[in-house]
Simulated scan of single mutants.
Amino acid sequence: MVNSKPKFVSLTFDDGPSPYTNQILDILGTYNIKATFFVVGEAVKNYPEIVKRINSQNHVIGNHTWNHPVITDIPAKELSSQIQKTSLVIKDIIGEEPIIFRAPYGKIDDHSFRVIQDSGMKSVLWTVDSLDWSLPEKKLIESRVLKNTMTDSIVLLHDGDKFGSGPRDATVHSIPNIIESLMQSGYFFLTIPEFHKQCFTIEKW
């Protein structure tokens, strides 16, 4: 019997916006794919026009703190401030606050999780780490993503070039082949809110 269950995947980008984000948006537009961008407040302040473009092209924007700290190492009051400050600067640009949050480095504990919940945010991690911040060639990034992606995967990539990520050229160049290969394998691309409606909750809400 043929399995008719749809295959879903969500592309997510962290640490932006940056000039690389525009290149990624161009590629996503070519394939008519929507993605989710977890943005850092400091970068939002520096590139408001890119944030407007992300929003105008119907991608989803999530909160990724103000300056990318390890949130398990900071007091609750500071984490709350990081979240609120970032959400407000996003709202000033696009008219609404994000409802999803991703912890830098994926480091989260019960203490920080409660702060995120109290801030009205839903915490989102990932299931496929591209390791694009450490892999120097696009083929290595492509191989890692395509090898590890399965039905209902959330893929972590980076459009920001700060916070230890470095230049994002290899990431940008890897995206077309990742998209085309996943399309050929029958995947449908969803934003994180769409993903949670269609698939399953990655962690408790």
Rank of each mutant, 00 (worst) to 15 (best):
S130Q: 13
D152H: 10
E49M: 00
K204Q: 12
I90W: 05
K45M: 10
M183C: 13
F38L: 02
T72K: 09
F163C: 02
E96N: 12
S112G: 13
G166L: 01
L125Q: 10
L190R: 07
K77P: 00
E49A: 06
T191W: 09
E142V: 10
M150I: 15
E49G: 00
F200P: 05
Q198N: 08
P69Q: 14
M1T: 14
S123T: 03
Q117T: 04
Y20W: 14
F188I: 09
I71Y: 04
T36S: 07
D92K: 01
S87E: 11
N46I: 13
D129P: 01
V39N: 09
M150H: 15
I192L: 08
L11F: 10
P193N: 01
E78W: 03
K139R: 12
F101R: 02
P75G: 15
V9W: 00
H68V: 11
P193F: 02
L146Q: 09
N148G: 04
F200E: 05
I83M: 01
F163Q: 04
G186S: 12
P19V: 04
D132W: 03
G41R: 02
V89C: 09
W205M: 10
I202V: 09
I116A: 11
V172F: 05
P176Y: 00
H68F: 04
D159R: 08
H158E: 07
P6F: 07
L125G: 03
S185Q: 07
P75H: 14
V155R: 12
L156H: 08
P69H: 14
T36A: 06
L25G: 00
P193T: 06
S10I: 08
R168L: 04
N177D: 13
Q57M: 06
I33C: 07
I192H: 07
S18F: 15
D161P: 03
D169H: 10
Y187P: 07
S130E: 06
M121K: 03
P98C: 05
E49V: 09
P6Y: 08
T21R: 02
V2L: 05
F13W: 05
V60C: 06
D109I: 12
L79A: 10
I61E: 10
S143V: 05
G160R: 03
V40K: 00
K77D: 14
W133C: 03
H173K: 14
R168G: 12
D109V: 05
S81I: 08
K52S: 07
P17L: 14
S18Y: 15
G160F: 00
N46P: 06
F188G: 13
S80Q: 14
F13G: 11
